[in-house]
């Protein structure tokens, strides 16, 4: 997994609450056996009109935000379906960081497992960041847990220490867990099974 350290990129404001994974990646893109190539499905029902043409009103279709790698979102971002296809699509589009007052839990874990930083910030800070998302570049620094706006204002965000370490290292959970195979086997020997 690609480690996350710092990111300098354009941020797109998406202030609504409860943006669900059905919106982030609609179900018509789930029938794949691959992790890649999902960018075209990202927010597809909003990015594209039914005739396939771009919806010029959607934020990610507006000039400065087309290349956004940061989203400034509302409460409970990523709620709904557990589809990891949602973070895969975000990643494929180029998004590496989402800032929101809160995230749905499965989505949050899925982000961490794909090297995307889900930064939690106060609602007031998110509003401020959204207002300053004018197409200029923000700087996100994970080790100091700070975001600097294009105008140079600095804000903090929270992330739990274990997940932070994992993102910084780009660590792979399966490899780590397999180091504990003996403990797993020991647990299995004392596990009660009814037949």
């Amino acid at each position: 997994m690609t480690p996350f350290t710092t990111l300098r990129a354009v941020a797109a404001p998406m202030a609504e609450a409860n943006i669900d994974t059905d919106q982030i990646l609609p179900k018509q893109f789930l029938a794949t056996t691959e992790r890649s190539g999902l960018a075209r499905g990202l927010f597809a029902d909003q990015r594209f009109n039914p005739d396939g043409r771009e919806n010029p009103d959607f934020v990610l279709n507006r000039a400065p935000f087309r290349g956004a790698q940061i989203l400034i979102a509302g409460d409970n971002f990523g709620c709904g379906s557990s589809r990891e296809h949602a973070p895969w699509a975000l990643l494929d589009f180029g998004v590496r960081c989402i800032v929101a007052p809160s995230f749905a839990e499965i989505f949050y874990n899925n982000c961490i497992n794909n090297g995307i930083l889900p930064a939690i910030a106060d609602p007031a800070i998110c509003t401020e960041l959204g207002a300053e998302a004018d197409g200029g570049e923000f700087t996100v620094d994970l080790s100091s847990q700070t975001i600097v706006t294009p105008a140079g204002e600095q804000f903090g965000f929270t992330i739990e220490a274990g997940r932070k370490a994992k993102l910084l290292a780009g660590a792979d959970d399966i490899t780590l867990t397999l180091l504990r195979t003996d403990e797993i086997a020991a647990f299995e020997r004392r596990r009660v099974v009814w037949l």
Partner: peptide, 8 residues
């Protein structure tokens, strides 16, 4: 859980 966790 997500697919990475399924693999785990």
């Amino acid at each position: 859980i997500g697919t990475s966790e399924v693999e785990h």
